[in-house]
């Protein structure tokens, strides 16, 4: 079995570098456990250098349409015309996310996708984390898709011209093309998916998660301690502390 993460990235170099280092650890853990895992980063800035240093694939693409970047990553991961060893599964993933390897203990069958209902969000100032249950069909955060489903849309499942709502576009188009597709929703411990919000431009601000039922909240570095690598958590704490210092 093999699995690729597809990670569009834009700016936020330090935060993205920390998140990509965590993704490297997740890939290595999965590979050690028998699932060959790696990632491709789609960007047009120094994030590509970080990706190369970590051994990930890269695609240089402008940031005009986020959906096109996801399509690029998915196509490189799965399309035998571009990848001599296409992956069995693909996971679109944010450049500000941490995803735990145990989320991939179960992988979807050919007519399934797996979504996750629980995840947590760190506030833009790094002083609070909140765990939420997201009741959208297919959950939120990340989703796992098999190659078979993506093949029905030429490995480019999202509308090419979207700047947001890419995960919804992928799911909508796949359901339309594959009426028998089954959505498997899992409810992992919410700390297993962490969305690190930052100040400035982002697709979904922290305030927007308030509509979903809270599971718990607290100091992010207390709540996540023991679940994630202490060194990377320390780097993230320093990143937020530095970001809080007035210019």
């Amino acid at each position: 079995m093999s699995l690729w993460f597809c990670v569009p990235a834009n700016g936020r170099l330090e935060l993205t570098a920390i998140c990509l280092r965590q993704l490297r650890r997740t890939c290595d853990r999965l590979t050690d456990a028998g699932t060959q895992a790696t990632a491709v980063v789609i960007a047009c800035d120094e994030n590509l250098d970080t990706a190369r240093q970590l051994g990930f694939g890269t695609i240089e693409r402008d940031n005009r349409f986020l959906s096109r970047r996801f399509n690029d990553g998915i196509q490189l991961a799965l399309d035998p015309a571009h990848n001599p060893r296409p992956a069995d599964h693909v996971v679109p993933c944010g450049s500000d996310d941490w995803v735990h390897p145990s989320l991939f203990d179960q992988l979807p069958g050919d007519d399934q996708m797996i979504g996750f209902q629980n995840m947590c969000f760190v506030r833009e100032d790094g002083l609070e984390v909140t765990a939420r249950r997201i009741s959208y069909p297919g959950g939120c955060g990340i989703r796992i898709y098999p190659r078979s489903l993506m093949a029905t849309l030429g490995y480019r499942p999202a509308d090419e011209d979207r700047v947001r709502g890419c995960d919804t576009s992928i799911l909508y188009n796949l359901r339309r093309a594959n009426p028998a597709m089954r959505i498997v929703e899992l409810a992992p411990d919410p700390w297993k998916i962490v969305d690190w919000k930052t100040r400035g431009e982002q697709v979904t601000p922290y305030d927007h998660v308030g509509q979903h039922p809270p599971l718990w909240q607290g100091d992010p570095f207390d709540q996540l301690d023991g679940h994630w690598d202490a060194g990377l958590l320390g780097e993230m704490r320093v990143h937020y502390q530095r970001d809080m210092v007035p210019a």
Binding site: Q36, T38, A39, V40, R52, G55, F56, G57, T58, I59, E60, R61, R68, N71, D72, Q75, L76, H82, N83, P84, R85, G154, R156, E160
Partner: peptide, 22 residues
């Protein structure tokens, strides 16, 4: 048109080598 990948693309390090060895 048929949308496809841009020109500047690289596979992950060792991905093809791993294939050969596996």
């Amino acid at each position: 048109i048929t949308p496809t990948l841009p020109e500047l693309v690289s596979l992950p390090a060792g991905w093809i080598t791993d294939k050969e060895s596996n």
